[in-house]
Design a protein around this nucleic acid. Structure first.
Length: 573
DNA sequence: GCCGTTTTCGGCCCGACTGTTTTCAGTCG
């Protein structure tokens, strides 16, 4: 996949054009980069199928940029980019990653001090050469050194599951102040993106200065990056930035909309406003100086001719068009999910007993759970042999009878071998209520082989669900490469369900895959893959992921009642 | 360089904060 490489080049070209004060090109290249980066189709494939013409079908890609992509595919480089880089041969990627450093400053640093890399910059700053440059000063120099120090540390994005509790704590902390009317975590947290780059808090208050005080004095704050009258920015001890913005009550809806984003969604909205001779900003929707909407998100969207849409949808991936045509999905709700369909007990590698898991799940309000311990060859995870499995089934049946208010399905997570066969006989599998099959090893196979391997498992009438279908682990491994279209086709034909694994660093399937599955009419199941009763709450992350993939109640089998689900599992294949 | 249910030319999203300046450029989101 060359998309990321090309996106990176376009980002850098955008910065070079900023250096040279070229108008409008930077935005064009940046936008193209952003859109290419988030595309799921490989640019090379698109080009192979339809040439430069097909490339120009892509949003943000016109003649000029299509030519550049074509050039990169054919020659492995882009002349225009090489020329820009020759004029200013600096490590743009890492220099501009330093907080507070942008293209203009990088240009001056290169021209006056020959700074090419972050190391050069650090040396120059330590020698106090930086503060002597025009429009630079001692504070800038100090900030540069701090920025470099920070960029050396463990930075980057954080898992939603890890940040959500912290964001909610900050939210509540501000909300509890008597001069704060409301406090909401907006941004990517409200959109529930799988990873989070910073925490954006919106607060409604008529005492902004007091909110600033409280926010900057939170115990997690390690450094105050900016502290203004209505906006502050801090660095938290975990290495994540948090911003707060205070607005008046009458702007709440517009502000919430604005700070929820995403950026592209907002740009489209603001253009729509312009077309209606209106202006949209965080204070409201304005005709001249008159605010025509702003108190609620609904009214902002309504005046723009749109229906309100769930934050999870706001990625400018078709939701605006859907909203205009009243074709928005009715996303599966948090209360629609009635059970958890993957978890482990101490019969394999889980920390708690079946009974403890059941009781904890009941407390969460689940009507049923599936205990799905590991089998056979997965010894490292305490995989059970066939004799043990029979005892395990008996134990589940016994506990199921004893428990009141929750039903327990006899489940297994079987291993898909390299050749696509399973590590447990069909005879034993037939005794289970629910069978998950998944790949745990030998990821490095060709696309065709891995696809065939999984399809082979789906052909088995005993297999109900493919668990964590792509095996990715966020920020650690990308998973195997698989022909997802073929997987969907096979799942549809064989009546196999695909899992949305809700484990915080898996979230597998991802939103793009889910959307495709929904379109293909393939059913989904949500499982937390809990290895401890404390992880059962991750079900929320699975629902979140389903929602980001435009899944509705009917698409997810966890929304069925117990009886209906049992019937479904019996007859699906 | 992109884009068009008014347009193939003439627009292009908007505002806060900082540090350096005496009115604003640069950066960020």
């Amino acid at each position: 996949m060359i998309n990321q490489k090309i996106a990176k080049i376009f980002y850098q070209m955008a910065e070079y054009y900023v250096m040279d004060d070229v108008a409008f090109k930077p935005q064009a290249y940046e936008r193209a980069g952003r859109l290419i980066e988030s595309m799921e189709e490989d640019l090379e494939e698109i080009y192979k199928k339809g040439g430069a013409k097909a490339l120009m079908e892509i949003e943000g890609v016109g003649q000029g940029i299509a030519d550049k992509i074509e050039e990169f595919i054919k020659a492995g480089k882009i002349k225009e980019y090489e020329k820009l880089r020759k004029d200013c041969p600096v490590d743009l990627e890492h220099l501009s990653a330093i907080e507070g450093i942008g293209p203009k400053m990088i240009k001056v640093l290169y021209e006056k001090l020959k700074v090419k890399t972050v190391e050069d910059l650090e040396k120059a700053a330590k020698k106090h050469l930086v503060q002597k440059l025009p429009r630079f000063g001692p504070k800038v120099e100090e900030n540069i050194l701090r920025g470099i120090e920070f960029s050396k540390g463990d930075k980057g994005r954080f898992l939603l599951g890890y940040i959500l509790p912290l964001a909610r704590q900050i939210e509540k902390r501000l909300q509890d102040l008597d001069f704060v009317e409301r406090a909401v975590a907006a941004g990517s947290i409200r959109r529930k993106k799988e990873t989070i780059g910073d925490i954006d808090i919106l607060a409604i208050s008529d005492k902004p200065e007091k909110v600033m005080e409280h926010f900057c004095a939170m115990p997690e704050v390690e450094e105050i990056i900016a502290k203004g009258e209505t906006k502050s920015s801090v660095r938290l001890d975990i290495g994540l930035d948090a911003d707060v913005r205070v607005l008046p009550s009458e702007s709440f809806g517009a502000a919430l909309q604005y700070f929820t984003g995403n950026k592209d969604h907002n740009i489209v909205l603001r253009k729509m406003a312009q077309d209606k001779r209106l202006k949209l900003n965080e204070y409201g929707l304005f005709r001249g100086k008159k605010q025509v909407a702003g108190k609620t998100e609904e009214e902002v969207y309504k005046i723009l001719g749109l229906k309100w849409m769930e934050p999870e949808l706001r990625e400018n991936t078709g939701e605006i068009e859907a909203s205009r045509g009243s074709e928005l999905p009715k996303l599966v709700g948090y209360k629609d999910v009635r059970g958890d369909l993957q978890m482990h007990s101490d019969w394999s590698d889980g920390a708690h007993s079946i009974e403890e898991m059941a009781q904890a799940a009941k407390k969460l309000g689940h009507e049923y759970i599936a205990i799905t311990d590991h089998t056979g060859e997965l010894r490292i995870a305490g995989g059970m042999d066939e004799k043990t499995i029979l005892k395990y089934f008996a134990e589940i049946e016994k506990i199921d009878k004893e428990q009141k208010g929750i039903r327990i399905l006899k489940g297994l997570e079987v291993n898909i071998r390299k050749d696509g066969s399973l590590d447990i006989s069909d005879e034993i599998l037939a005794k289970a209520d629910i069978v998950l099959a998944s790949v745990h090893s030998n990821f490095k196979m060709s696309v065709q082989d891995i696809t065939e391997r999984i399809c082979c498992a789906m052909e088995n009438p005993q297999v109900d669900i493919i668990a964590h279908p792509t095996a990715r682990v966020i920020q650690r491994r990308s998973g195997y490469e698989v022909d997802f279209a073929k997987l969907l086709e096979c799942a549809k034909r064989t009546g196999t369900v695909l899992e949305i694994n809700a484990y915080p660093d898996r979230l597998d399937l991802n939103d793009v895959h889910i959307k495709k599955a929904v379109q293909a009419g393939v059913k989904l199941s949500i499982g937390t893959d809990s290895h401890s009763k404390t992880q059962l709450g991750n079900i929320e992350l699975g629902i979140v992921q389903a929602r980001r993939g435009w899944a509705e109640k009917k698409d997810t089998i966890n929304t069925m009642g117990y009886e209906e689900l049992v019937k479904f599992l019996k007859n699906e294949k």
